[in-house]
Amino acid sequence: MTTLTPAVAASNQLLGSLPEADLQRLMDDMRLVHLKARQNIYNTCQLVQRVYFPYPVSFRW
């Protein structure tokens, strides 16, 4: 498993567009997870409890 560093976080382009201080603040609560193909992230009408920044996994809705 890759170690979470600012460079890894910035490999997601949305996060990578943030100023360094903003990204660093978010990283304190961020973790890296591995997701399997076909894994359900959330369903319709479900409370979204976590947000995901893919790197390099892809999702569909």
Binding site: L35, N40, T44, V57, F59
Partner: peptide, 18 residues
């Protein structure tokens, strides 16, 4: 609350935030 379903399409890593 989501009005859509989200599904992982290809396996890989993601950064997750509460």
């Amino acid at each position: 609350v989501s009005f859509r379903r989200a599904l992982v399409q290809t396996s890989g890593d993601a950064l997750v935030l509460p």
